[in-house]
Nucleic acid binder design. Structure first.
Length: 274
DNA sequence: ATGGCTTAACAATTAAGA
């Protein structure tokens, strides 16, 4: 079983590339962020034609998340309120469409688009920290449900200096400030693990390259798109790959897909050879 | 370089991303 995450920076602008990648890779699940389209205009038919069911939570122009699945897509939950009913903060944060989950083949797949935060100390930075605090509460409620969890998406945080191209210059700034990193560590707790780091401890592995300043040509990226697994799923992980070639295409997204390979369900012999 | 590029919205510029 393979589960991918890709910030596509507009699903309509990127549709041809996403379809081509799906046809080539055929992951069981692909989670999208920054779809930038309301639900009525989401190109579901194009994905359904390739055998993918769609769960979507979008809005006009900004944000927007979706889960595409070749396996049955069940119990779709949208927003923080799904697990925090009556919580005023969860409802307030619902205005921006950044949270969707689904039950797929015995796994709770949680797809997130964490706010960017603009600049340290700005209003948007405050919003980002509030959003992360709400996510922590959401995850505590999720843990009480007892479902195996795969949480993935665009976290807009470089968790450690090895996830940044120039730590000396960038540490402390947006996406690398201690409050953001601490908020992320706290919501992960002892329960959730960055599966990419199980297989690759080194620096120089990026998932996002700025459109500006020739960041791609100079390979000055960040690793801000992550896949986190609970212990039960982590024990089944056989690999985690960043598909960086997509970033080198014409008119690319600034993010590349990240894919985890799981021998799941645990008794599935076919997956264990992956 | 409070810069650089790309997208959506709207119809020439602005907001936002990260």
């Amino acid at each position: 079983m393979r589960i991918g995450s890709w910030n596509v920076n507009s699903v309509r602008t990127r549709l041809t590339q996403v379809l081509a990648w799906l046809e080539q890779e055929r992951p069981e699940v692909l989670c999208l962020q920054e779809t930038k389209v309301d639900d009525e205009r989401f190109p579901a038919e194009a994905f359904e034609a390739l055998g993918y069911a769609c769960a979507i939570s979008g809005q006009k122009a900004y944000n927007g998340v979706a889960i595409l699945s070749r396996l049955p897509l069940e119990d779709v939950q949208i927003g923080f309120s799904a697990l925090l009913p009556g919580d005023a903060e969860a409802e307030r944060l619902e205005e921006q469409k950044r949270v969707i989950s689904a039950w797929i083949d015995g796994i709770r797949v949680l797809n997130l688009y964490v706010p960017n935060g603009s600049a340290v100390g700005s209003d948007k930075y405050g919003y980002k920290l509030e959003w992360l605090a709400c996510l922590r509460c959401y995850l505590e409620a999720q843990e009480r449900q007892g479902e195996p969890l795969c949480m993935l998406g665009d976290f807009n945080i470089g968790p450690e200096d090895r996830d940044l191209p120039d730590p000396q210059r960038l540490t402390g700034g947006i996406m690398a400030s201690e409050p953001e990193r601490q908020a992320l560590r706290e919501l992960l707790g002892e329960r959730l693990h960055d599966v990419f780091r199980v297989f690759e401890p080194g620096s120089g592995h990026w998932s996002w390259w700025d459109y500006r300043s020739g960041a791609w040509e100079r390979d000055q990226g960040w690793r801000i798109d992550h896949i986190y697994l609970c212990e039960e799923l982590l024990a089944c992980a056989t690999g985690c790959v960043i598909h960086r070639a997509t970033r080198g295409q014409t008119q690319p997204s600034d993010h590349a897909p990240v894919v985890v390979h799981l021998a799941w369900p645990p008794d599935d012999e076919e997956d264990e050879q992956a």
